[in-house]
Amino acid sequence: MATKAELESELADLKRQLAERPKPEPAPEVTPESDVETSDAIASEATNEDAIDWEAELGELVEQFDDLTHKKPLLFALGAFTIGYLLGRSK
């Protein structure tokens, strides 16, 4: 176990190292008007991209689901039964 003197010397060394580190530069100031305009533009871009991605993902999911019903009907029936059972037991 370390003694108090050893811990104090280690603390002093760490404080010295911290003082020697260069100070970070402050972040540039942003005016409220430019910040609002930028966030609105980003939000509208994200909304358009998200809508396109959701439509593509939903189409792909429906296609995979349709393939599953034709390729593996037993697995589909077992999955439907399991979901129905779990929903029935949830109440």
Rank of each mutant, 00 (worst) to 15 (best):
T3Y: 02
T3E: 06
T3Q: 02
A5I: 04
L7R: 01
L7W: 00
E8I: 14
S9M: 05
A12Y: 01
A12G: 08
D13P: 00
D13Q: 10
L14N: 03
R16W: 04
Q17W: 03
Q17A: 09
A19K: 10
A19Y: 02
E20Q: 14
R21D: 05
K23F: 07
K23S: 15
A27Y: 00
E29W: 01
V30Y: 00
V30R: 09
V30A: 09
S34T: 11
D35Q: 13
V36F: 07
T38C: 05
S39G: 01
S39M: 11
D40I: 08
I42A: 07
A43Y: 01
S44D: 10
A51V: 07
A51D: 13
I52W: 01
I52V: 10
D53R: 15
D53F: 14
D53K: 15
E55M: 05
A56V: 15
E57Q: 13
L58F: 05
G59I: 03
G59E: 06
V62I: 13
E63T: 15
Q64S: 12
Q64M: 11
Q64C: 10
H70T: 14
H70E: 14
K71M: 08
K72T: 13
L75D: 04
A77P: 04
A77R: 15
L78M: 12
G79L: 15
F81K: 15
G84D: 09
G84T: 12
L86A: 06
L86Y: 01
G88I: 05
R89I: 04
